[in-house]
Design a protein around this nucleic acid. Structure first.
Length: 468
DNA sequence: GGAACTCGCCAC
DNA sequence: AAACGTGGCGAGTTCC
């Protein structure tokens, strides 16, 4: 059988990657056991209290009245049955198998106060049972040793388990603080995390080489998300330092730009931006609705601009999508077509890093796999290189984990400057020499927690003065 | 009594 | 033409 020569580079990356990951697994991450034990007790008390209150409500008594045995408030089968069959609520959202959904979005739409209480219970149980209990179960002498796998993901990314170190809460402030407080450096050390900034966007650009996108990446003062926010929300004097404008920018970034890159389309994007972020309804908009900003409420602003209802906004976003791929990023759009056509002809695709994806893939798979995979491989290459260098220098600082585009180091404060310089050299400079296909600059951000602090306390670390 | 499934939810 | 990519895991439920 014929293999393209690049496949040996891919093999080498996997081989060395497995060894480097094993090294990190062996190090492990320290858990503040005293804290976790105490916090679990607190959470259990709070959950019991919330459950007791919940079972006193009219809602619960009605529910209990309609079933033969005992209600289990954590059973979504029972909950769906009660809400949709007994109470006769119209199903607005279905699960993948076509049942009435009972996820947060579905429950919030029903506007029943008791369901908010149920969601709060769910959230605390998730924190306790998935994360804190997982740490307790997996720890050995106060250290967890999460596995990092390289053989399980279709795109040749990694996965993690026992416990999964790649889905520790971050967005929800309360969950983040509770769970990350449990993760600590070794005594006298600090936890440091280095993140590649916008890695997937940059690696995508190495494939499609779109002129406009390259300009955005090469000019740090430019901001694609702000430009798109101006266009979508029709605001000329856009100021992202204004809290309300920043909400719109985030809405555009997470509700339009990234979903479009992943292959989503205008209808979902319009809904996400207007309803989830802008807090507007799906019908005709009325004055005073939506988030508040200097231009007035979002609804008033849109009405003034001639967009009086959600359907009108959908049309508006459709035009912007057309403009996005047709005028702004035509070379990116062309690349998507070329790769899809090539895949259909050959039945496989080869990444810049030498990995081959074959089997049945959708159009979205074909545009996402190479980008997701090779972006991760940049991280993996850096991980391997850094691991070797720390080992060779016999440093006390050790890599302990990785989250797709970031590396977590348990660092000896005395080695901080040396490690940071090394990290920057490897992640942003050396990698360019190894892989000439990386035609964009790569950049990182660093976060650091205090000595003997926890991962919840990490803060942005200004390291650039080392280089000035 | 365990395997396999669904659902919901956490991350990038 | 089609219509969001990749995972892990806990709890409940169903199947054998």
């Amino acid at each position: 059988m014929y293999y393209e020569p690049e496949i040996m580079n891919a093999y080498k990356l996997l081989h060395e990657g497995v060894l480097a990951f094993a090294h990190a697994e062996q190090q492990g991450i320290r858990i503040d056991m005293e804290y976790v034990t105490l916090k679990m007790k607190h959470l259990t008390r709070t959950i019991e209290k919330l459950e007791a209150n919940f079972s006193k409500t009219k809602f619960f008594r009605h529910w209990q009245h309609t079933v033969k045995g005992k209600v289990n408030i954590h059973s979504n089968v029972q909950l769906a049955n009660f809400l949709y069959k007994i109470k006769g609520i119209q199903i607005e959202k279905e699960t993948v198998s076509g049942q009435g959904a009972t996820d947060e979005e579905a429950l919030r739409k029903m506007d029943i106060p008791e369901l908010s209480d149920l969601l709060q219970i769910r959230k605390l149980k998730k924190i306790r049972d998935t994360y804190l209990d997982g740490f307790i179960r997996e720890q050995v002498d106060g250290y967890i040793h999460p596995f990092f796998n390289l053989h399980l993901v279709k795109t040749y990314r990694s996965s993690s388990d026992s416990p999964n170190f790649q889905n520790i809460p971050k967005r929800d402030e309360e969950a983040m603080m509770i769970v990350r407080r449990a993760l600590c450096p070794r005594p006298g050390h600090q936890l440091l995390e280095l993140d590649y900034s916008g890695l997937e966007v940059r690696i995508a650009a190495c494939y499609h080489k779109d002129k406009t996108m390259l300009a955005y990446i090469n000019n740090p003062a430019s901001d694609m998300h702000t430009d798109m926010a101006k266009q979508i929300f029709i605001i000329d004097k856009f100021n992202k330092d204004l809290p309300s404008h920043n909400v719109l920018r985030q809405a555009v970034k997470n509700g339009f730009v990234f979903p479009e890159f992943y292959g989503d389309y205008y209808k979902n994007c319009a809904e996400s931006m207007a309803c989830s972020w802008g807090k507007l309804g799906r019908g005709v908009w009325k004055p005073g609705q939506g988030i508040d900003m200097p231009e007035g409420h979002l609804a008033d602003h849109f009405i003034k601009k001639g967009i009086k209802s959600f359907p009108k906004f959908v049309d508006h976003v459709q035009k912007i999508e057309k403009d996005f791929w047709g005028r702004r990023f035509p070379e990116y759009a062309k690349w998507k077509e070329t790769w899809w056509r090539e895949y259909k002809k050959k039945g496989y695709l080869i990444m810049h890093t030498g990995f081959r994806c074959s089997g049945i893939m959708s159009r979205n798979d074909v545009i996402n796999y190479p980008v997701q995979g090779s972006a991760f491989h940049c991280l993996l290459w850096s991980f391997i290189e850094l691991d070797k260098r720390l080992e060779r220098k016999e440093m006390n600082s050790k890599i302990v984990g990785q989250v797709h585009d970031s590396i977590i180091i348990d660092i000896d404060p005395r080695e901080l400057e040396e490690v940071v310089k090394l990290v920057y050299k490897i992640t942003c400079q050396d990698i360019q020499k190894t892989w000439p296909w990386i035609i964009v600059p790569l950049d990182i951000e660093i976060e650091l927690c205090p000595i003997d602090g926890s991962w919840a306390e990490k803060e942005k670390y200004e390291f650039r003065y080392f280089f000035s």
